[in-house]
Nucleic acid binder design. Structure first.
Lengths: 336, 336
DNA sequence: CTGAAAGCGCTAACAA
DNA sequence: TTGTTAGCGCTTTCAG
């Protein structure tokens, strides 16, 4: 039926081939000092000749710790998450770790338990969770605290090391920009979070500080289509002159709807995005948006975890990475 | 310094707690039949009480096979790749597998060897490689043939099971659409592949069959910015009336450059994209493009691998998934 | 500097 | 139906 399993060469094979004991091979493989250079050379030659690869399962079994970090997220293909993942993978690879992904697709309790179960059965070194929504957040809480973990995005969870982008600062800058332009208030089309997001908080706080009306947030999903639907509705309310969208995709949908409805952007309505995706500079109009370095976020998240794994140095507070406003064509002063 | 490692409960602990031998526990865990229901219940209770998780490293060590599939790619954040990854993860999770990602970032020989080395040291069940470029392609060739593997995109490699999207068919439909509209020829702005891509082949063949001039492909990168640069150049060549872009991002960059240069799309120049990203329907003009189901591609790729792992059934030929043209605003008849 | 022995947690024979 | 015995490939004492 299936091919008889062919054994990969083991340390014993290498030992036999180079005429030493397999413990000596282990020392060579693990770069320990106390090996005669000549012996080392002989062993290395045998390793090469046999095409030997250390077996990380066996190693994990005896050391009790793997060299894999798991990334837990509810989505890995949206721009920001995909790029963050890329950053994690980059830093992890450089540090000799391997990256595992687990997508939490349903809020279903048993589904989540299953995922966590599976996570923990692997020989993990640590775990990075995207806690922008409640899925990963509750998963983190199911993970025993002895497992090193860092949370990325949102509010964190379980008292874990936490790193995030300064979404609140970005939102503040965005709203201030619009206010400075002369808009009386700014509407917000955002994905309803269970816990208020930095974007929401920054928006709300800035309006409040300016003493201007604070309209109800308009709920959307992350799809451009959803932005389009909201945009069509906004087009009918001529008192709305500025919209702060949850991300660039939503903003693009809104812009398109507005223009399809005969309204001008930014002439009639200013629209601001979030994320600064590669496309944001090339849509028409190009988007004023908040730029975030997701790749750096991912790298730093891994570094944080790495510190936890190696020295158990728990950072005092959350790490906040800067964001900045990029002004483009989609915002302007309101029509007088 | 670092916390003393706390042992997770092992089978022995469960055995002790439930008053059976640990092999019986093994039977229960692995859902084998020959266990007294009562014993089973007792064991399960102990599992629950202790919070026992099977150790997959130990299991992999003895069975010689892991339950992890590795995905090897040169990029995981571009829309198509990110979505394909999502499809793989989805199917893998459903089948009880875990997904590992390895990004091949440099064509450097030793770098690649390092990555493959690391891959093979894990207890893998199999491997999925994105062979759209030469990086993953040569990595696959470094992997011993005993390891089940499937290649996705491009031309495949190493005689492995291969699944891809019908990019050639998509390109043909796109070019035919443009030709039918009355364009005399169609230029192609594509990312130069080492081996001709389906997009390139479909474009070239369709032009050839139509007996129209076949201009040199215009090299770009996957960035919208690159599309913009190419678009600026195209804007100066008033004999170009139709451009087939390598993907939607490039198309968007081209469109923007064209319009910035005072040319109309599709009035002066028709632009066609590829991928049908969520945004393609909402840019201005919206993009005529070729739609591809990346998530399905990912799922099917995993299924293929799964078949290889479980029954070693090597498919006869490559699996080709359909693509289809979506006509929107960015294409139209040439000005007479 | 090198070798011998033990055992990580598990599955797969085989025995009872 | 359950228990016994090996041993997967490796690192870690501890001897030499």
């Amino acid at each position: 039926m299936s091919t008889p399993r062919i054994r990969q060469p083991s340390m014993r094979d290498v030992a036999r081939a180079s005429g030493v004991s397999y413990q000596t091979v282990s020392r060579v493989i693990n770069d320990q000092e106390r090996v005669h250079p000549e012996t080392r050379a002989r062993v290395l030659a045998a390793v090469d000749a046999l095409g030997y690869h250390p077996n990380s399962a066996a190693r994990a079994l005896v050391t009790g710790r793997g060299s894999t970090v798991a990334v837990v997220a509810s989505n890995t293909s949206l721009y920001g998450y995909a790029r963050t993942l890329e950053g994690i993978e980059d830093a992890a690879f450089a540090a000799g770790y391997t990256v595992n992904i687990t997508v939490l697709r349903s809020p279903d309790q048993s589904d989540r338990a299953d995922a966590v179960e599976r996570l923990l059965s692997q020989p993990l070194a640590g775990l990075i969770a995207f806690t922008h929504d409640d899925l990963a957040r509750s998963a983190v809480e199911d993970v025993p605290s002895r497992m090193p973990a860092v949370t990325v995005f949102g509010t964190g969870a379980g008292g874990r090391a936490h790193i995030l982008l300064d979404e609140e600062g970005g939102a503040r800058a965005a709203i201030r920009h619009l206010l400075d332009l002369g808009h009386r208030t700014i509407h917000h089309a955002g994905v309803p979070p269970l816990l208020p997001s930095g974007r929401l908080l920054g928006w709300r706080a800035t309006l409040e500080e300016a003493g201007v009306p604070r309209p109800e947030p308009i709920p959307v999903t992350w799809e451009p289509r959803s932005g389009y639907e909201v945009g069509s509705a906004i087009a009918r309310q001529h008192d709305i002159t500025a919209v702060f969208a949850g991300n660039d995709d939503i903003a693009t949908g809104i812009v398109r709807a507005l223009i399809d409805s005969g309204r001008d952007v930014p002439g009639d309505v200013s629209v601001i995005g979030f994320d600064d995706t590669p496309l944001a500079a090339y849509t028409r109009p190009s988007l004023t948006t908040v730029s975030q370095d997701f790749v750096e976020l991912g790298r730093r998240a891994f570094d944080l975890l790495h510190g936890l794994i190696e020295q158990d140095d728990q950072p005092a507070g959350p790490t906040v990475l800067p964001t900045h406003l990029v002004t483009r064509e989609s915002t302007g002063p309101p029509r007088r």
